[in-house]
Amino acid sequence: MQSIGPDVLDKRADKRKVIHVAVAVILGEDGRILLARRPENKHMGGLWEFPGGKVESGEDVQTALNRELHEELDIQVSTFMPLIKVRHDYSDKSVLLDTWVVGGITGEPKGNEGQLIQWVEKQSLVRYQFPEANKVILRALQLPDRYMITGYFNDEETLFKKVSSALSAGVRLIQFRAHWLDESEYLKLARRLSKRVQTQGGTLIIKGRLSLLMEPWCHGLHLTSHQLGLAVTPERRHADQLLVASCHDEKQIKYSEVMTVDFITVSPVKPTQSHPGAKPLGMDQAAKLTETATVPVFWLGGMSLDDIKGARRLGAQGVAAIHEFWGC
């Protein structure tokens, strides 16, 4: 594990002007996504990208997207769903990628600037080479909008039954939380539960020490805010493992990013039964913290399915919850 010095944590102290870029993930009626390949004679030529361009002064993002899509692809779109905002610092400039999933296409896409375009299945996006800044967009596209955290259970049968029911209902991302168990009992259950979740098409995230990432059965690890103080880059056994972190303030968000997490939870957004003494952030503060992150953010604490749309509109990936998914 590589230690990270304080200089890395201050990497975003740079006050250079940030270029606001509107990015369109164009979704076809068949679920495929339209990519464009940058011409070889341009900056980062030969790489694939999601179409878009700079937002002009006084222009809203949706107008900018349609202007750019008309210029680049000779199309217009009518539906807009925010995906993620992410800042990326290159050696010569900083960009804020304001990314939206768009649809309702009018016109037949074509490369007006001589660029190659191609419709791609979402699961095949990993085969294409993108600019570094696009990698967070790809992760956001792969993540669902709900993250279930397991609640209290008396026995293994109840645990497996509730998790299986959630998977059957469409939940695909689950954190196994059982702080009342000792470590050996917890990990014994986690191994079996991980296999069950994977069989039903989901991913199980566990809690515990960083070295668990080296276990072949571990498909994801959720770090506590206290573990973020370790300031190390954890080694992973395989590339598709997910590393997640709990964050409550901007400092923790920065620590999580230097630890190369795939996404974070920000909490508590609202009052919550599991942590009744914790002061809630409120929607406005949660949105401000989300804007500082460079990875997808799930809002946690008193969240319900009804909050997904509002959280997405304010920049979050979706919501995480215990009671909403687990029941009591």
Rank of each mutant, 00 (worst) to 15 (best):
Q142K: 08
L159W: 04
T158Y: 06
I117C: 12
P144R: 07
K93H: 08
V101D: 02
V102F: 02
R87M: 11
R127S: 14
Q142A: 11
V163W: 00
S164P: 07
S164F: 01
S164Y: 03
R87S: 11
D145V: 05
L97Y: 05
S124G: 06
T158K: 15
A140I: 03
Q142I: 04
T99I: 01
K93P: 02
R146H: 13
I117T: 07
I117V: 13
P144T: 12
D89W: 03
K161R: 15
K110H: 11
N154R: 15
L159A: 07
S94C: 12
S91A: 10
R139C: 08
W119D: 08
E132S: 12
N154F: 15
T99D: 05
S94L: 02
G104E: 08
T158S: 15
G114I: 11
E132F: 06
G114H: 10
I137H: 02
P109Q: 05
M148Q: 00
A166N: 05
L125T: 00
V136M: 09
V101L: 13
P131L: 08
Q142N: 14
L125I: 02
I149T: 03
W100H: 03
V101F: 04
Q142F: 06
K161L: 13
V163D: 00
G114P: 01
I105E: 05
I84Y: 03
V86F: 02
V86A: 12
D89H: 10
G103T: 02
N134E: 07
G107N: 02
R87P: 03
R127K: 15
P131R: 12
Y152K: 10
V102W: 00
V101Q: 09
E113D: 08
Q129L: 09
R87H: 12
G103C: 06
G111A: 13
G151E: 10
P109C: 04
V120T: 06
S124Q: 14
A133T: 00
L97K: 03
K110T: 09
K161W: 10
P144H: 08
Q123H: 15
E156C: 11
L97M: 11
Y128H: 08
D145R: 06
E113V: 13
I137R: 01
T150A: 12
L116S: 07
K110I: 10
D89V: 03
Y147G: 01
V120S: 05
S91F: 11
D145S: 10
D98A: 02
W100N: 00
V120D: 02
S165T: 15
K162A: 11
V102N: 01
F130W: 01
G107A: 09
Q123N: 10
R146C: 12
F160Y: 13
W119F: 09
L143R: 03
L138R: 00
N154D: 13
L143H: 12
R139D: 07
Y128A: 08
V126G: 11
G104R: 04
I137P: 01
S165D: 14
D145C: 13
D98M: 00
P109S: 04
L143Y: 10
T106G: 09
L97W: 00
K122P: 12
